[in-house]
Simulated scan of single mutants.
Amino acid sequence: MPLKPYKLVPIQECGEPLVAIPPDPFTFVRPHPYENLGAPYDNKSPFYVRQGVLERLLNAQSQLQKSHSGWKIQIFDAYRPLAVQQFMVDHTFAEVLQQKGLTESELTEPERAAILELVYEFWALPDPNPAHPPPHSTGGAVDITLVDATGQVVDMGSPIDELSPRSYPNHFATSKNGPEQTYHAHRELLNWVMTQAGFQRHPGEWWHFCYGDQMWAWLMNQADPTFAAIARYGRIA
């Protein structure tokens, strides 16, 4: 697969440690969806991030409380070892095959290429090259949503990890449909509390936010070419 543009950003690893995300003031998706599938975490937790990411998550949660009392950021996924990235790519590939009623051994090359293109639109390549780490393998990325004051997950219009255009952050932006306008407002709220805390949102996923990794630096530079950001976080084995 061709390298995505953000993968060309240089990395100067800062050595900041992975730290546990505290259960309070956040909430976690339990059981963890990838652990539940059997993803090989090898006693590592998906609910870890770099220290600087945690500090910014706490800031985002504080801002959320100011505008929406009782609401919480719900952590769906954070740190992801390379082996887990590979597992989830393979799992997603198999899911698409099943949905299409196809068998891998009978795929034509164009069919295989089309499925891989779809999978890699939403899942980073599990590249072992330390210069091109998957974002979640750096500890700099989080997949999140919101929970309201009653403990209910806020409806964003599509589930996390859905392989469809509904996952694009602005999919409902121009809709005249009332519920869809609400979905967009929820996505904008999530984006606001995260970006004011220093995160950048994945251009194709409403739930994915990053700080300090290659994607964050690339997005910062896209917004301001004079910024000349570089990545602070490389892959953690």
Rank of each mutant, 00 (worst) to 15 (best):
Lys4Tyr: 12
Met220His: 10
Glu162Tyr: 02
Val53Tyr: 00
Tyr79Arg: 03
Ser137Arg: 06
Ser175Cys: 04
Leu118Ile: 12
Leu82Asp: 09
Tyr48Cys: 15
Thr27Glu: 15
Val53Gln: 04
Tyr233Trp: 14
Thr150Val: 02
Ser67Val: 14
Leu64Val: 04
Phe87Met: 10
Glu95Pro: 06
Trp207Gly: 03
Met88Trp: 03
Asn129Ile: 06
Pro133Tyr: 01
Gly198Lys: 02
Met156Gly: 08
Pro10Gly: 02
Asn170Arg: 03
Pro126Asn: 05
Ser67Ala: 15
Leu146His: 04
Thr27Phe: 09
Ala173Pro: 00
Ser69Tyr: 09
Ala113Asp: 14
Val49Ala: 02
Ala124Ser: 13
Val29Ile: 15
Lys7Val: 11
Ala231Cys: 08
Ile144Ser: 08
Glu106Leu: 12
Gly139His: 04
Leu125Asn: 09
Ser105Lys: 15
Met88Gly: 09
Ala185Gly: 10
Val193Ala: 03
Leu189Arg: 00
Gln63Asn: 15
Ala39Val: 10
Glu109Met: 11
His202Lys: 03
Val147Arg: 12
Val154Arg: 02
Met215Ile: 13
Pro179Phe: 03
Trp71Phe: 11
Trp123Gln: 12
Pro130Tyr: 04
Gln181Asp: 00
Lys176Phe: 06
Thr145Gln: 13
Gln85Gly: 14
Val119Cys: 11
His32Met: 08
Arg80Ile: 09
His136Gln: 10
Gly38Cys: 09
Ser175Lys: 01
His68Trp: 03
Trp216Arg: 07
Pro110Gln: 08
Gly234Pro: 05
Glu205Lys: 14
Glu55Ser: 07
Ala94Ile: 02
Asp161Asn: 06
Thr182Gln: 03
Trp192Ser: 14
Trp207Arg: 05
Glu106Met: 12
Pro31Arg: 01
Pro31Tyr: 02
Gln214Pro: 05
Asp24Gln: 14
Ala131Arg: 11
Glu111Tyr: 01
Thr138Cys: 03
Gly198Ser: 04
Pro203Ser: 06
Asn59Glu: 15
Met156His: 07
Leu189Asn: 01
Ile21Thr: 06
Ala229Thr: 02
Ala114Cys: 00
Thr226Asn: 13
Pro33Asn: 09
Ile160Phe: 02
Asn129Arg: 10
Gln152Lys: 07
Val53Thr: 07
Met1Gln: 13
Asp143Ala: 07
Gly15Tyr: 13
Val154Phe: 06
His68Ile: 05
Leu82Met: 11
Tyr48Gly: 00
Ile73Pro: 12
Ala124Cys: 12
Phe122Gly: 13
Gln74Cys: 14
Asp213Cys: 01
Met220Asp: 09
Ser105His: 10
Gly15Asp: 15
Thr108His: 11
Glu95Arg: 08
Gln85Met: 12
Gln181Arg: 03
Ser175Val: 00
Arg50Pro: 06
Asp90Gly: 07
Phe93Met: 14
Tyr6Gln: 15
Val53Leu: 00
Phe227Met: 11
Leu97Pro: 10
Tyr168Thr: 13
Leu102Val: 14
Thr195Pro: 07
Phe28Thr: 01
Gln196Leu: 11
Met88Ala: 03
Met88Lys: 04
Met1Gly: 15
Ser45Ile: 02
Thr195Ile: 09
